[in-house]
Design a protein around this nucleic acid. Structure first.
Length: 274
DNA sequence: CAACCGACCTGTTCGC
DNA sequence: TGCGAACAGGTCGGTT
């Protein structure tokens, strides 16, 4: 269930392994994986292409393809993984839905038990992502920029943080961690934040996401997020609130509580987040 | 419009 | 131990 830090970790490793490599063959198993175009069109666009720049917008990976001026877009959703496989004879893991064979002999496999994830190949400007807000890590330039994005948002600040059209990349874990870091209550209406609060929020976005990227993302459960090489991240060790119901708040030592916002769990400290 | 809900799926963990 | 319920890091579309 990757959010921005996990996708960024995968992006950097993919760039090291894939840039300049040619996709010699592609295979799709699982009809849901390709759903914005026909499998035939996807394969036709992928095969023979060389991978150029590898970008990220929020939780989406974007692999530029040469010389076609197209781009391969990947979204892992809840359970998707991209795995680097040095030896293509390696037995397929269950729920392997796509394979990209490379001219080096290695391959990239897309594994996704819940099948929510998807791949597609589109034009380089990725019109499907046109309505996205600035990337939370790389495109949010100042507290005033954040303030502009929050303007007119009369919904809970957590909802806004997770709205990809406002700011791209933040999901349920990092929204809770950012709000704790900024000492803000999740239910506070975004358009009522004071200037100091917005400054704290901006700083918290950078602090929390930056720390998580440095730790190669959060791997909370055994079966969940893995990097390109199948390794876990360690950002979960720095979590102050997420999945810590009943444990001591790192600031005041009172128990972390869990509430619902919509259907999602929210972890927070009622004393430190006023 | 804001808030909530189910749907899409499989796998793991929780509670009795 | 067994078994069903609850829950999971995302997103969309529909209803109230």
């Amino acid at each position: 269930m990757p959010e921005l830090p996990e996708v960024e970790t995968i992006r950097v490793d993919l760039a090291n392994e894939l840039t300049g490599r040619r996709i010699t063959d592609a295979a799709i198993d699982g009809v849901r994986t390709i759903r914005r175009q026909s499998v035939a069109e996807f394969l036709e666009r992928a095969e023979g292409a060389t991978v150029g720049t590898i970008r990220r917008k929020g939780k989406y990976l974007i692999l530029d393809l040469e010389p076609s001026q197209l781009a391969l877009v990947v979204h892992l959703r809840m359970s998707g993984q991209l795995l680097w496989v040095e030896d293509p004879a390696t037995p397929l893991m269950k729920h392997t839905h796509a394979r990209l064979s490379l001219d080096s002999g290695a391959e990239i496999r897309f594994v996704d038990p819940r099948t929510f994830g998807e791949l597609w190949i589109t034009t380089r400007n990725t019109p499907e992502l046109a309505n996205f807000g600035p990337d939370a890590l790389t495109e949010l330039s100042s507290w005033k920029h954040l303030s502009d994005r929050l303007a007119g948002q009369r919904v809970p600040v957590k909802v806004v943080l997770m709205n990809q059209e406002v700011i791209a990349g933040i999901g349920n874990i990092y929204a809770d961690e950012i709000l704790f870091e900024a000492r803000l209550r999740y239910s506070r209406k975004a358009d009522t934040l004071t200037t100091p609060a917005k400054k704290r929020l901006f700083d918290a976005v950078g602090t929390v996401l930056g720390r998580a990227v440095a730790r190669r993302g959060s791997s909370l459960a055994d079966s969940q997020y893995r990097d390109l090489y199948g390794q876990v991240g360690t950002a979960q060790r720095t979590h102050a609130v997420y999945a810590r119901e009943g444990l001591a708040c790192p600031r005041c030592a009172r128990p972390i509580i869990r509430s619902k916002l919509g259907a999602r769990s929210t972890y927070w400290c009622r004393f430190c987040q006023q």
